[in-house]
Nucleic acid binder design. Structure first.
Lengths: 221, 221
DNA sequence: CATGTTATTGGCGGCGTGCAACTAAGTGTG
DNA sequence: CACACTTAGTTGCACGCCGCCAATAACATG
């Protein structure tokens, strides 16, 4: 990092990858294998590889693929962290990303590659002592996600291809950490153009079947 | 940049610095003196100097200070641009910042340091051919600013220490590029805690004097 | 058929907004 | 001094959206 008299900063992408597991909003954490902050839990991240990554955004995509084996929809920049002291290896930049994974995608991976990676409910994760400044990162990623939901974005990437309105409402409620009114939520969804009911498709199981919905092509989280 | 076999990216901070001049929303542009894209207009920017800048955010602050001689309130990250092709010098990262300057601050600088820096109305600036990907940057910085105003943030940093409600309304209107309803705007401002009327202070001049307001301590952006 | 559980809809009051008109205060003119 | 003009600030009203509460619909189980 110090070479021709000039200091080059280390450049990382760190990802807060969210998913819903067992009726809880969870974040993917990885236990650090190597030396700086070894054995501590951290957000999955990696260094920019200019020969491989067309951009730092692509670094984030690559990291997700490496960790869980699937490509997440909706990978978005949250904030850039930088400074000389946040990583003992030297002056560093870390771009924080927020990404969502559906239950279908999580199940497709079955077991994660290593036992050193796991889904942790965000309530527990924010209490954990994370490596570096990843505790702050997780908090900001959550704020970012909550702000989007408050501004009426829909977390469709957290859901399967078809879903009931209650699934969607629950996802919003889990992210916000507060209940969402059923009747006004459904009213809004009826007027929404980015989801539509799948004619004749209903959730089977107990009691009254629920109409299933799917995202329309023009949807961007 | 290529030294010990590893490629280190160049790291820049670029700033979209806005101010209101002659009833127009303007952005500060600098004419490039040196070789890549020489003579083209660009957003003021500079390279990260790890020995000087405690963080990349501080790089942005330093750049503003160097260009206009004052420190802007409210310097915020917009988006990180990265890739191998956006700058001919090699793989680069540019963090885009959005910052606001009040008329008072602009006047305090009197003339800008060089004639190669100037305030350009955003309507003209978006038409200009800017260097690198700065055209996209300017567009995104504007979107960023507009989104904040739509979400009911107040651009107090664009105004002087004391201001009339019409000043504030005009600032919002200029940013949005569309008229703002006077009556509902004033209703909102009455309920707002981040500004308060200055007792007994009125704008002098022609016709009926306008009550002057100021920001309260608890104001952020 | 009664009961429980989930799905879906409807009514109602409150709040904020956009629109339009109105009042208030000061300047300028004949 | 009456009157027109300009800017400042208010008021009334209709509309839309939201939260709250309740009702109805569809299905399962005993």
């Amino acid at each position: 990092m110090l070479t021709d008299g000039v200091i080059y900063p280390l450049v990382f992408a760190d990802v807060a990858l969210f998913s819903i597991q067992e009726r809880d909003l969870c974040v993917l954490l990885a236990r650090r294998a190597n030396d700086p902050e070894a054995n501590k839990w951290a957000l999955p991240g990696g260094i920019l590889k200019p020969m491989i990554d067309a951009s730092l955004d692509q670094t984030a995509v690559r990291i997700i693929r490496d960790k869980v084996g699937v490509s997440a929809g909706c990978v978005e920049q949250v904030r850039l962290f930088s400074g000389a002291t946040r990583d003992p290896r030297g002056y560093s930049l870390s771009q924080l990303y927020c990404a969502l994974l559906s239950k279908d995608q999580v199940c497709a991976v079955a077991g994660l590659k290593t036992s050193e990676v796991g889904w942790v409910p965000v309530k527990l994760a924010t209490d954990k002592e994370l490596a570096f400044d990843h505790g702050v990162m997780l908090t900001e990623a959550l704020q970012f996600l909550r702000a989007k939901i408050k501004h009426r974005a829909l977390p469709l990437h957290l859901l399967n291809a078809t879903f009931s309105l209650l699934d969607l409402q629950d996802a919003c409620s889990l992210i916000l950490g507060s209940p969402v009114d059923k009747s006004s939520f459904r009213r809004r969804m009826k007027a929404e153009t980015c989801i539509r009911p799948v004619q004749g498709q209903f959730r089977e199981g107990a009691y009254r079947p629920a109409q299933l919905y799917q995202a329309t092509p023009d949807f961007q989280f």
